[in-house]
Write a protein that binds this DNA or RNA. Structure first.
Length: 429
DNA sequence: GTACATGATTGACA
DNA sequence: TGTCAATCATGTAC
């Protein structure tokens, strides 16, 4: 039998004796040996092919039925299935057996940790609490942010589960469909149960890759939510008024050297309910912005000077606390910050009176300073008429180089609470 | 929507 | 390592 005939023979898949509709020579397994015979065979086969379309559906069904009922069919299918198992499927099997995807495991772990997957027993809440703790922000509005975070996480969780359910449903439907299809096809071509099982596995893998994408997207959403929640810059909140006042009071009362020590920073942080880093940031920004635009801050400086003066005056007139006046506290609710000096304020006050600032003079006589302060206060309302702004709070603390007057290197900046030798002009001196 | 205020970040520097 | 200076990103007032 020549190659073409063999091909046709195998393609028809019905090279079995007694099958209707095939040329007699094929049914008998004989092929033409001479050229004319071959031509005749091919012609017959072509004729057969051409007439297939002319056959009725019933006729085709009858043929199909006859084929399925052929006594040799099961045996032949078994053999073919065996061959398939030994060749193609075994090769595929070796390729498809993969270890669990580490990325998928990471995603699963993360979703579990974030409370997106797994039981919903406050996982998101715990994550939010951890996020809050990590952020180290002021606690006042933490609960609001916390609930916001939880709500958004819950939303993500809901979407995740809905989509996951959809995928699983679709996967099951598709698997059932394919299995039915393969079972149906197994009547006409050799498909072993193992092959069907393998196909199911392939479908599942495909769907799990889709699920992995879903998991990845969910993880990204959680990460974004988390980063937004944690990112201090994004959730920047202006300090409350009290905190700003406390910081400003310190700044303007240490204008000649507005570099709080670590201890002072910690105390300010505690008073303002912010972190030490935030205090440092605040002073850094304040120094820069004050230096850049002193005129703009003049009014503010005067206001704090007046306040400090009033409080200093009150403190000194109410007893013997002149050596350690507490920070002026406009509202009295911010707590008293122990600024043991008002030297810079006095410096400015004295300059108001035309005296040049000399550190040794500062705080020499508390009572006289209080008197001077009272004078300043009386003028505060109309300083703009009689006094230039610079007279009130001249940038004398800033040297020609742009640095603060006598400002030591940051590392040697001493606390306002430090004793003699400090660059600050404590009244306690 | 826009301009300004303000807290945070970043890179350079001493 | 703390500070400066520039810059970013958000809040707020209009």
């Amino acid at each position: 039998m020549d190659e073409q005939t063999r091909l046709m023979h195998s393609h028809t898949g019905v090279g079995m004796a007694g099958h209707p509709g095939l040329p007699q020579h094929m049914q008998e397994g004989s092929g033409g040996t001479d050229g004319d015979g071959r031509k005749q065979d091919i012609g017959d086969i072509l004729q057969q092919i051409m007439t297939i379309t002319d056959q009725s559906l019933d006729e085709a069904q009858a043929r199909k039925h006859a084929l399925n009922c052929h006594r040799m069919k099961p045996a032949l299918f078994n053999v073919l299935c065996e061959i398939k198992e030994k060749t193609v499927l075994s090769i595929r099997g070796a390729q498809e057996e993969e270890p669990p995807d580490p990325q998928l495991m990471r995603l699963d772990n993360m979703l579990l940790a974030e409370g997106v997957s797994g039981p919903e027993k406050g996982g998101g809440s715990a994550a939010a609490a951890a996020a809050v703790a990590a952020s180290g922000g002021a606690g006042a509005d933490n609960s609001a942010e916390h609930s916001d975070y939880r709500a958004k996480l819950s939303q993500i969780r809901q979407i995740y589960h809905t989509e996951l359910e959809k995928y699983e449903q679709a996967c099951n439907e598709f698997t059932t469909h394919v299995m039915n299809l393969l079972r149906e096809q197994s009547r006409t071509r050799p498909i072993s149960p193992k092959e069907i099982e393998r196909m199911v596995g392939i479908i599942h893998r495909k769907f799990s890759s889709i699920q992995m994408q879903l998991k990845q997207s969910t993880c990204e959403a959680v990460m974004i939510l988390r980063s937004r929640f944690l990112d201090a810059r994004r959730k920047r909140r202006n300090f409350n008024k009290q905190a700003t006042e406390i910081l400003n009071e310190y700044f303007y009362s240490h204008l000649s050297n507005p570099y709080p020590s670590e201890e002072a920073k910690e105390e300010l942080a505690k008073k303002c309910a912010i972190t030490v880093a935030q205090v440092s940031n605040w002073f850094g920004n304040k120094r820069i912005r004050y230096k850049k635009n002193i005129g703009k801050f003049q009014e503010e400086a005067n206001m704090y000077a007046a306040r400090t003066a009033v409080n200093a005056a009150n403190a000194s007139s109410h007893g013997s606390q002149a050596n350690s006046p507490s920070t002026p506290n406009s509202a009295g609710s911010a707590g008293s910050f122990n600024m043991s000096n008002s030297g810079d304020l006095f410096m400015s006050v004295q300059s108001l009176n035309g005296d040049s600032y000399q550190g040794a003079q500062v705080g020499a006589n508390v009572q006289s300073q209080v008197d001077t302060l009272r004078h300043v206060i009386s003028q505060t309302g109309g300083y703009s008429e009689g006094l230039t702004a610079n007279q009130m709070y001249s940038p004398q603390g800033i040297n020609a180089n742009g640095g603060w007057q006598d400002a030591p290197t940051p590392s040697s900046v001493t606390s306002p609470t430090e004793g003699p030798g400090s660059v600050h002009s404590d009244t306690s001196n």
